[in-house]
Computed example of a mutant assay.
Amino acid sequence: MTAGRASLVPRSKARLGYWLLAAVALVVFLGAVYLFVGTLVTGLFLYYAVRPINRRLRGRIDSDGWAAVATLFLVVVPLLALVGYVAFIAIQNVDTLLNQDVRRLVQPYVDLGSITSLSDLASNPQAIVDQLRQSGLQGVVSMTLGAIGIITNAVIHVFLMSAVVFYLLRDDRRLAAWFRSAVGEGSPAHVLGRHIDRDVSQVYFSNVLFMTTIGVLSALGYSGYNLVAPASVQIPLPIVLGVLTGVASIVPLVVGKLVYVPIAAFLFGAALQNPDGLLVYPIAFTVGAFLFLDFIPLTFLLPVMAGRALHSGLMIFAYVGGTLVFGWYGLFLGPLVLVVALRVWLDLVPSLVRGDPVAPGPADGPAETEESDSADPGDQSQDQPAEDQGVDDGTPGP
Results as ranks from 00 to 15, higher is better:
Gly4Phe: 14
Leu8Ala: 14
Arg11Tyr: 13
Lys13Ile: 14
Trp19Tyr: 15
Leu20Gln: 15
Leu21Gly: 12
Phe29Val: 13
Gly31Trp: 11
Val33Leu: 08
Tyr34His: 13
Tyr34Phe: 15
Tyr34Arg: 15
Val41Thr: 07
Thr42Pro: 07
Leu46Gln: 06
Ala49Trp: 01
Val50Lys: 08
Ile53Gln: 11
Arg55Ala: 11
Leu57Ile: 06
Arg58Lys: 03
Ile61Asn: 06
Trp66Glu: 08
Ala68Cys: 09
Ala68Asn: 04
Thr71Cys: 01
Phe73Arg: 02
Val75Met: 12
Val77Phe: 03
Leu79Trp: 08
Tyr85Met: 10
Ala87Lys: 06
Phe88Val: 14
Asp101His: 13
Gln107Arg: 13
Pro108Cys: 09
Ile115Met: 10
Ser117Ala: 14
Asp120Val: 06
Leu121Gln: 12
Asn124Tyr: 09
Leu132Arg: 02
Leu137Arg: 12
Gln138Pro: 11
Val140Phe: 12
Val141Pro: 04
Ser142Pro: 08
Thr152Cys: 12
Thr152Ser: 12
Ala154Trp: 09
Ile156Arg: 02
His157Phe: 09
Val158Met: 14
Met161Cys: 09
Ala163Ile: 13
Phe166Gln: 05
Leu169His: 05
Arg173Leu: 05
Trp178Phe: 09
Trp178Asp: 07
Ser181Thr: 15
Gly184Trp: 02
Glu185Gln: 04
Gly186Ala: 09
His190Ile: 06
His195Asp: 15
Asp199Lys: 13
Val200Trp: 03
Val203Glu: 14
Tyr204Ala: 09
Phe205Ile: 15
Ser218Glu: 02
Ala219Asn: 03
Leu220Arg: 09
Ala229His: 01
Val233Phe: 08
Pro236Asp: 12
Leu237Ile: 03
Pro238Asn: 08
Val243Met: 02
Gly246Ile: 01
Val247Thr: 03
Ser249Thr: 05
Val251His: 02
Leu253Phe: 11
Leu253Glu: 14
Val254Ala: 07
Tyr260Val: 02
Pro262Asn: 10
Ala270Asn: 09
Leu272Thr: 14
Pro275Trp: 01
Pro282Ile: 02
Ile283Gln: 15
Ala284Leu: 07
Phe285Ala: 05
Thr286Val: 12
Leu291Arg: 10
Ile296Glu: 03
Pro297His: 00
Thr299Leu: 08
Thr299Glu: 11
Leu301Tyr: 04
Pro303His: 06
Val304Cys: 11
Ala306Leu: 05
Arg308Phe: 15
Leu310Thr: 12
Gly313Pro: 00
Gly313Thr: 03
Phe317Thr: 05
Tyr319Val: 05
Gly321Ser: 01
Leu324Glu: 04
Trp328Asp: 09
Leu333Tyr: 02
Gly334Pro: 05
Pro335Asp: 03
Pro335Ile: 05
Pro335Asn: 00
Val344Phe: 08
Trp345Met: 11
Leu346Gly: 15
Gly355Gln: 02
Pro357Leu: 03
Ala359Arg: 03
Gly361His: 06
Gly365Asn: 00
Pro366Ala: 15
Ser372Glu: 11
Asp373Gln: 11
Pro377Ile: 00
Asp379Ser: 14
Asp383Val: 09
Gln384Phe: 15
Gln384Gly: 13
Pro385Leu: 13
Glu387Cys: 14
Val391Met: 14
Asp392Lys: 14
Gly397Arg: 04
